[in-house]
Amino acid sequence: MLEIKGLKVKLEDEDKQILKGLDLTVETGKVHAIMGPNGSGKSTLSYVLSGKDGYEVTDGSAELEGEDLLEMEPEERAAEGLFLAFQYPVEIPGVGNMTFLRTAVNAQRKARGEEELSAGDFLKVVREKAKELKIDADMLKRPVNVGFSGGEKKRNEILQMAMLEPKMCILDETDSGLDVDAMKLVADGVNALRDAGRSFLVITHYQRLLDHIKPDVVHIMADGKIVKTGGPELALEVENNGYADILAEVS
């Protein structure tokens, strides 16, 4: 599904290398987790994959089902099936959540040459999916993320994911700012979307999210590279011993 080879990325405005030759393959239908200390380049990876400005790829490649992601505009990547759940979802005053969702869904359908969803059909689907995430009618009507609590914002990200039905989902520290109940709700939403045709890359600091979203593969990232890969037990090791042991072991 997602294949990253030797990816090197620096900041556009300053001469600072963030990713230093990253290799990662996420197979179709699998859930991969990336853990790592602050400043290891986890969020940068998610931004570079989804096409945010401000980064310069100096070497390497990233492909989604064989298509070169790095050559595409952010909206093209989305239409190809890539989705990033933001660590800090953006507030957009004056644009209703429902309008936003419908614009996004139909823009992607249009880009793929599919027919746009009618207002009626859209409403039916969105209500059903919102209900599962305990998102009420009021949250759908309000401007995008404006006045939402931390938990509401993250649930709203998952609702977008559920509506857009991407192939490759990247969750950037989706657990940050969530209490236990909210995390469970978000994790249930993600688990409901797990599917043989859909892959996930879950970026997190802590093991606790991985109690709820069980990964197939766990990677440890440090200083712009994947330094260790293993099964779910690797996350437990981090939880018990911190990153220091692993980093000492690989260096």
């Binding site: 909206e75 644009v95 823009a107 992607q108």
Partner: peptide
């Protein structure tokens, strides 16, 4: 970027944010 990452083309995203303003 948030809007584009959801698949909204650049021009439409600008217009949506203009309306939002």
């Amino acid at each position: 970027f948030y809007l584009r990452s959801r698949g909204v083309p650049l021009a439409d995203a600008r217009n949506l944010l203009t309306l939002s303003f």
